[in-house]
Amino acid sequence: MTTTIAKLTTSKCNVIEQTGEQLLLRYRETGDRDLFARIVQMYEHELYNYLHRYMGNAEMAEDAFQATFFQVHLKCDQFESGRKLRPWLYAIATNQAIDAQRRNKRHRMASLDQSNQKNDDEMGKLIDLLVSAEPDPVDVVDAGDNQQWVRDEISSLPDHLRSVVGLVYFQGLKYREAAEALSIPVGTVKSRLHAAVLKLNQAWHASHVQRN
């Protein structure tokens, strides 16, 4: 397939103008491996990033990435024309990530509401939390530490919140597309994203504002 990838650079002009959906439908009809390679290339960066962030591990992300496209190859007959490819791909990728975590037994029994352990008495809401007079995150925290801190916090979120943050915030899916990818109602996606943002802010207040 290395040759296939190489060939793509020369034959790119034939397929580059096609959407992922069109490529998959043509691949299904013709079995043309170049078309499949093009789909893999097209979604390589964003799917790998999603899986890497979701699983917090490069090796497992690679395995899940390969398993995702293996499933795409096996199940391409089930893809309905008229549907969007991205939510379908993310649905497969999320399932593969969950399966991989179970197989590797590295799946933590993340609690559904971990940061609430620190703040048991009141669930609170994002606006209620932020309306307090405490200083803005940007003003307080050293920028150098921020990225690692937020990655650690995201990786400690329960699966159902982490997947929504990954899909909607980092991968830029619409609420409706994320709902389709996760097979949950749109309202649930919205409330989960809100809950995840609230938790990150609660964690930030607990670890930085109180310390400062």
Partner: peptide, 10 residues
């Protein structure tokens, strides 16, 4: 990664 994935399918 893309090449290895395609090889796997092949």
């Amino acid at each position: 990664l893309a090449a290895r994935t395609c090889d796997l399918i092949d």
